[in-house]
């Protein structure tokens, strides 16, 4: 085992971690504001992947156009889901559980809709940038570097928006005390709508960036959703910092498992970390700190 190999693996872990962080911060935002788990979150990732696939291969667009279009499309679907389904379940009896079935239904529906329209074949998406970086014998594909960069920029932008814009403050207020937010004149239903849109966009971006590395297929969101849930809980559900920390932690742990053991055991290690963290820190690493 050479040093270059180790660094390469760690870098791959960082790539997975960046994707996990993108997905998990969306789940955390939804939990923070709406107090619900979104089981259809993986499908927005899938839609992002397919959006880029369609834009690049059928539309012949440049990635600079295709990626934003795919992200926007998924965001619109997310807002539609909120308005047509989630909005109607809010505050009704059974709200503690009803979104679980509703979002599972959306997940099954979207998977099979895509399956129906685009078929079950795995589709390949070309790399946005060919070639890679070569430092001291280590190879890092530009596509992977791009993923990490995009994730850092987008997550940082999300945090900045939440921290310092009027809309971001409204989201935080809604998350911290919904009734008070309403009494202050915040339209929390609009907050819910936009939160769904933004989180769908974050997931779609992850899918769009990652699709050249893995191919796209209707079920690509399922496995990642489980990982994103783990990341949320390991980091502390509802905490954005936790989502980032948890994502990087999980990505690194997985690549170390591949390096030191065998790739088929990396998921077992991931889930074991989850159970251990919950055993010793029941509220996750960052707890449910307010944001």
């Amino acid at each position: 085992m050479t040093g270059a190999l180790i660094v390469e693996q760690l870098f791959n872990g960082l790539v997975s971690g960046a994707i996990y962080a993108l997905m998990a911060s969306g789940l955390s935002l939804i939990w923070g504001t709406l107090k619900m788990l979104n089981f259809a979150h993986g499908e927005f990732y899938m839609l992002g992947g397919y959006g880029v696939y369609l834009g690049l291969t059928l539309g012949g667009l440049s990635p600079l156009v295709a990626v934003p279009l795919a992200v926007l499309g998924a965001a619109l679907v997310g807002m539609l889901v909120e308005r047509l389904i989630i909005h109607r379940l809010l505050d009704k009896p059974g709200w503690d559980e009803s979104p679980v079935i509703a979002t599972l239904g959306v997940s099954i529906l979207l998977q099979n809709l895509v399956l129906h329209i685009l078929g079950e074949r795995f589709q390949n998406v070309p790399y946005y940038v060919e070639g890679g970086l070569s430092v001291y014998g280590m190879r890092m594909a530009w596509q992977r570097v791009l993923i990490v960069a995009a994730a850092i920029v987008v997550v940082a932008a999300t945090v900045a928006v939440l921290k310092s814009t009027r809309w971001g403050m409204a989201v935080r207020a809604t998350a911290q005390d919904r009734d008070s937010a309403m009494l202050a004149g915040i339209n929390v239903y609009a907050v819910y709508l936009w939160t769904f849109g933004v989180t769908a966009a974050l997931a779609a971006l992850a899918g769009a960036m990652l699709s050249p590395i893995y191919s796209v297929n209707p079920w690509m969101g399922t496995a990642l959703l489980l990982k994103a849930f783990i990341v949320c809980v390991v980091g502390g559900l509802g905490s954005l910092g936790g989502a980032i920390l948890g994502g990087i932690l999980l990505g690194t742990a997985e690549s170390l498992t591949v390096l030191l053991w065998a790739s088929e055991w990396k998921d077992v290690v991931a889930f074991l970390i989850l159970i251990l963290v919950l055993w010793f820190r029941p509220a996750g690493l960052m707890g449910s700190r307010q944001w």
């Binding site: 403050m169 935080r172 207020a173 911290q176 005390d177 009734d179 008070s180 937010a181 009494l183 700190r289 307010q290 944001w291």
Partner: peptide
């Protein structure tokens, strides 16, 4: 509101 209901993290 009763109990003040401030946003604790603001």
């Amino acid at each position: 509101p009763e109990g003040r209901r401030l946003w604790p993290g603001m």
